[in-house]
Simulated assay, not measured.
Amino acid sequence: MREEEIIEKLQRLGLTKYESIAYITLLKLGPSKATDITKESGIPHTRVYDVLSSLHRKGFVDVMQGTPRLYKPVNPEVVLERIKEDIVQDIEALKKAFLELYREVHGEELPEIWTIQGFDNTVERAEYVIRSAKHEVLINTPIEFLELLKNEIKGRKDVVFVIISNFDDIPSWLRADNILLARSGGAPWLMASWIIGDIDYALFFGALPKDKRREKFYSFWAKSPKIIQNYMHWFYTIYFDNSEVIKPINYENLSKPLSLVNIRTLITVLRFAGLPRKAEIVGRLVDTKELIEIDGEIVDYEYTPLTANVTFRYNGKELKVGGIGSYFEDVEGEKFILLD
């Protein structure tokens, strides 16, 4: 990364341009006098002490007392991790504040589905779904749109991807162990796009726009576990089950424990991993809604367009475990953790 880009990113984190230059200079020089920092960085001598004092207040610089006084850069990993924690806390606080504000003004909860206008905004939302996922990402989209998500997909080695597209061949950047690829059945309607992250966020849109219509492009953004659970069901039964797997995940090379939240993703993984598999399941008893966490083995599964469940051997007995919304099974599974 070029130094100009680093300065720009530091400014986005709240540093001024001079503060960014001073911190980079200290990383190069190590503990230094103010005069040395001025000489190396070009920051005016009349400004350098104010700049260094501000960096000290913001936690980027330690002051080493003595004659002469030295300024030492704080380890970048320590600084950036603290900033990340602060940003995440601020974002979560803002989410709650905005929800409360909306509720106070409108007397109701935020809508479960939003309309997104503009193709570039849709790309940004798709990238956000991938960045924010903790367990799995399901994608059904033409290769032209998939390529726009290349960097985000390459950056996530810690989630399972199930990707359906109109592949001619397999790009090298999609050959990672955690990615399962399927070639679309080919019917035009199969290429409507879905990008689903866990049960938290989902994005849906139809045909890709022509350049002149990018600003008039619309997509739909959902944040509702009940709705997204239906989307996941359609993803598998309409799209995945009518497609050809051309690259399975490499289960043995994935880090364990491996957590998933969709029963059909779990079964898809088990098809390639084999049975039995030691696992942990977090969910609720269907009859009583009691929260349970159980350790045992997955020994079988059932997968049809209407039903999807696993047989879980636990304390000498067998339980049927389904996904969110289960009512025929014994357990409504909310998280499935494969241990081996």
Rank of each mutant, 00 (worst) to 15 (best):
L270Q: 02
R69H: 04
G274M: 02
I238G: 07
G118C: 12
L80W: 07
F328Q: 10
F328G: 06
V299E: 03
I179Q: 00
S326C: 11
G316A: 07
Y49I: 15
Y102G: 13
N140Q: 11
L291M: 04
V137K: 01
E332P: 15
L70K: 13
V159P: 09
E3L: 11
L138T: 00
A192D: 07
D50R: 10
T265V: 06
Q65C: 12
K226N: 08
H56A: 15
L260W: 14
G316Q: 02
F336E: 01
V159Q: 04
F145K: 00
G30S: 12
D90E: 06
K226S: 09
L306T: 06
G66T: 03
E92C: 11
L94H: 09
D36H: 14
Y218C: 04
L174G: 08
Y231A: 11
E8Y: 15
L13Y: 12
I324R: 09
L254T: 03
L339R: 14
E136T: 09
E136Q: 12
Y218T: 11
F220P: 05
K58F: 14
L208I: 08
A222Y: 09
P73E: 02
D211H: 13
R183T: 01
I199S: 03
E92S: 08
V88A: 09
F161N: 03
F119A: 01
